[in-house]
Write a protein that binds this DNA or RNA. Structure first.
Lengths: 210, 210
DNA sequence: GTCTATAAATAGATAGAC
DNA sequence: GTCTATCTATTTATAGAC
């Protein structure tokens, strides 16, 4: 991908990327509209095809960015010189932080799950694998230290990432429910959720839930 | 809505409904294609508009069916003459069963969360409210009996429904990961997941995770 | 790098015959 | 209830000027 040399419009590619992330989050892959992306990026449609091969390539680059960020954060957590329990706490926090740094992350994640990972390319798949492998090593480390029991990493991962994405993505829906009087109070602080999931995850890994 | 009197094609409305559920699950609301729905239902497009006002009305009816089924099952659980703990176990099982009875349920649920409940009408919202209210009553009952601690029903609900939908919806993606060698084994039995979530939910309600 | 204009295909929705 | 045909708008993508 050629990058511009002059300073005037160096960021047009980035503007497309950001606008596309918002559009894919709001309407899904098939529902996303290239014209709307161009308008939001204050560019014309042709510029999108100048920077990206097509709609699919643009979308896949967003997926790689999302899961690449999670992978980087998780590998750093695994490498830290702390107890397995502390690694799990940081693992949960790292995933929440990566998702919060990108408002489009939770919606796109939910939609991609719904599509069975149809747009997940080899690079993204490798990132996911690395994350699961790192989690598996943290669990193994805890087992060797005698503090964790054996649980399938996917089971642990599901118990972490699904509630996190749920809470981050339902912010708008919970507001709607609260306005409609469907629930007394629907506001749950971000830290309360992360702390709760940290405790829940540790409880299951330490064999305290059976 | 007029229903046909002759037996020949009594089920054309139902065929549209089923085909639409599959299409919305696979491509999302905006991405769903009325022509494809018609083809899958072995009908022409005009028949869809004969039975349903438009694409949106068709989609909303599917949402009502999904959440109505959950509501019915949950209210039945709440009314049973069993302990609060057993009600929680049945609550988890009821939600899993309602989702499994409709293959389109998990994907559409995930997508609707991602869209911030944009297509959730008053009837569906009322179903969701009833479910949360019933869960709140079960929690209160447990608190009065001295077996549960105080937790926000939404926090409990998120810990139940998010992992369930995640596991049901990721079946295809986990197969893809397994084929790609991204994870040693990605097959997790349905009952193992439900049991795990039942235990996790009870552990938090019984204050055993702090 | 950025634009306008447009091609070519596909979308949701309806008219009207049977 | 079911169909074919079609209207109108929208969509992805590209050509070609600057």
């Amino acid at each position: 991908m050629p990058r511009p040399l002059k300073g005037a419009t160096v960021d047009s590619r980035d503007r497309v990327f950001r606008a596309a992330a918002t559009e894919f989050a709001a309407r899904g892959y098939a529902g996303a509209n290239v014209d709307r992306i161009a308008r939001a990026a204050r560019l014309n449609k042709a510029m999108i095809y100048y920077h990206f091969k097509n709609k699919g390539a643009l979308y896949r680059e967003i997926l790689r960015d999302m899961f690449g960020a999670v992978r980087t954060a998780v590998l750093e957590v695994e490498a830290a010189e702390v107890s397995p329990q502390e690694k799990i706490r940081r693992y949960v926090e790292a995933i929440a932080a990566a998702a919060e740094a990108r408002p489009h992350f939770p919606p796109i994640w939910l939609r991609e799950i719904a599509e069975g990972g149809e747009h997940v390319d080899a690079a993204t798949l490798a990132y996911v694998r690395d994350v699961l492998t790192a989690l598996g090593r943290i669990i193994d480390e805890g087992r060797r230290a005698g503090v964790f029991v054996a649980i399938h990493p996917l089971m642990v991962q599901g118990g972490i990432i699904a509630p996190i994405m749920f809470f981050l993505a339902t912010a708008r829906l919970r507001k709607k429910m609260e306005r409609a009087g469907a629930v007394p109070s629907a506001a749950i602080p971000r830290d309360a959720v992360v702390t709760h999931i940290q405790r829940l995850t540790l409880a299951q890994l330490e064999g305290r839930i059976a």
